[in-house]
Amino acid sequence: MKLPIGLQHGVLAGLLAGIGSATIFLLRVLRSLPLVALRPGLVVRQVYLVGVLSLVIIMISGLFVGMVLALQGYNNLVRFGAEESLGVIVALSLMRELGPVVAALLFAGRSGSAVAAEIGLMKATDQLSAMEMMAVDPIHRVVGPRFLAGLISLPLLVAIFTTLGIFGGYVIGVQLLGVDAGSYWGQIESAASFREDVLSGIIKSIVFGLLISWIAVFQGYTATATAEGVSRATTQTVVISSLAVLALDFVLTGLMFSGD
């Protein structure tokens, strides 16, 4: 591909060309999904690899994030005598922002990188070409199930992260610092709304799941077929997904919470 000579033009044109080919690739993957859905076994295996195996890191992180939130929140709230609101602070922060964003960042590092490396390595060792020569489309057989598994797994992981975080807040706030258990849970129940808080978190987690899965399979599939190419695809997956998650979180928050 011939790009304009100037550096800015080069970078911009390269970026646009990259987004363009990634979009065409995404459409191919999306078109394969009905066929992929007919092979639930393949998807379940990938959900296990990208989702279930991420459970430990997601649960531990969720717990600690919730505990830290409670510590920080309590120290500030107690100055205004408002420590009963601790539950709301912890729960809303987790549901709206920290749950989707932190879980997505962890997911990109733990699973996105693994998917990109695996597909890239299959390409570098001619396994994808071999499948094509056996009249098996690698988009159906390899890419589709991994993409779908990411899409399914991240929202569930976010839910688990958030739940564990709220529990971590309870352990620190109620058990350790002596906030009343009734007001911790009661305030969450009365202040958190389904549409605003739960739904916004779900939407974010679905968008992030799509984004990370897309970036990971695209980076792997288009990796240069060398050891260095695979390592670059892995790094790029984590870097691009992390930046994209943070940027898109800002946009989504702006869209969903600008009304009130």
């Binding site: 001619d126 396994q127 071999a130």
Partner: peptide, 9 residues
């Protein structure tokens, strides 16, 4: 037959 074999690892 690929030179490397290209078996599914």
């Amino acid at each position: 037959l690929f030179q490397s074999g290209a078996l599914l690892t």
